[in-house]
Nucleic acid binder design. Structure first.
Lengths: 152, 152
DNA sequence: CAAAATTAAATGTTTATACATTAATTACAA
DNA sequence: TTGTAATTAATGTATAAACATTTAATTTTG
């Protein structure tokens, strides 16, 4: 279904306008699918994203600030997200000794296990996308990078 | 700045994973820019989107349900958004006579004026994007449509 | 035609988001 | 050194989002 049909708008002012709307819509689309995918596991996409960042550290600790830098949505509150994950016993945290303002966060085995469980489903999701073909996906990634770069 | 640098992730599992993250990130990126753009006008992007839908009706009324169908984010509550716009005296509404469950909403001159004012700024925003060139933008739009289509 | 099902909008409620502020610690400069 | 600025995380707070539920009206069906 083309973006025109999705939002029942027959035409767009220009290709730029269409692209902006298409990007917002497609972003929303993915977020909604992935949120739905994660819901049965009692976790939100943002929380999962933090878990994934921690998992990427291979057991090593990372500060809340560093988590923020690696997050997709830098506006959301890493401190509170870590709080949620801590409450679920998926991560642990401890005051950093070198800089006592900082808090070192690291993933617990339960967190890693959850990640892996969810990744299986995400792989299925991404497998569908592979229909597009490697070349098209590379092109898409490049266009997206260029798109952001064009905006000051 | 490539998506790798933006979220400080050196590599991705595969091109599909990268595309998914890149799309979410780019969508967020645009939303944040446009939210910032609209803030001085005391309106949110979602509210603006509703106003734009009404403006597209050229003065004609449209039901709350029809608004929902045309919205980018179908999960958000059109009824409450219309409420907000009504409170700002940008739209008016009246019970539909043919179907008294429905409520006809239409834009007021103040709403149209606001839209036009904001569109000037949006045009500037979109002008930057035109750097990419018409062909690239068309390709981007096509890839986005294909991307969504690939997901069941 | 009356009861049941469906539809449209509004409302309730819990949780999340956006943003500002605060508190504690560290870095830096006079 | 000592006061000022900057940094890190946590917290406060108002608003919005996500969903479920409710209310009213209409449509369908037996």
């Amino acid at each position: 279904m083309s973006i025109s049909d999705e939002i029942k708008q027959s035409s767009f002012k220009n290709e730029e306008t269409k692209a902006v709307i298409n990007l917002i819509f497609t972003g929303n689309f993915i977020v909604q699918r992935q949120q739905a995918l994660m819901k049965p596991f009692g976790i939100t996409m943002q929380q999962f994203n933090v878990l994934r960042i921690l998992e990427g550290q291979k057991g090593q600790a990372i500060s809340v600030l560093s988590i923020t830098e690696r997050m997709l949505d830098k506006m959301s509150n890493a401190s509170r997200l870590v709080d949620k994950l801590f409450a679920k016993k998926l991560v642990s945290r401890i005051q950093c000794e070198k800089d006592r303002r900082a808090v070192d966060v690291y993933i617990l085995p339960a967190g890693s296990a959850l990640i892996n469980q969810i990744e299986v489903h995400l792989d299925e999701f991404r497998k569908q996308i592979s229909q597009l073909g490697e070349e098209n996906l590379k092109q898409l990634n490049e266009l997206l990078d260029q798109f952001r770069a064009s905006i000051s």
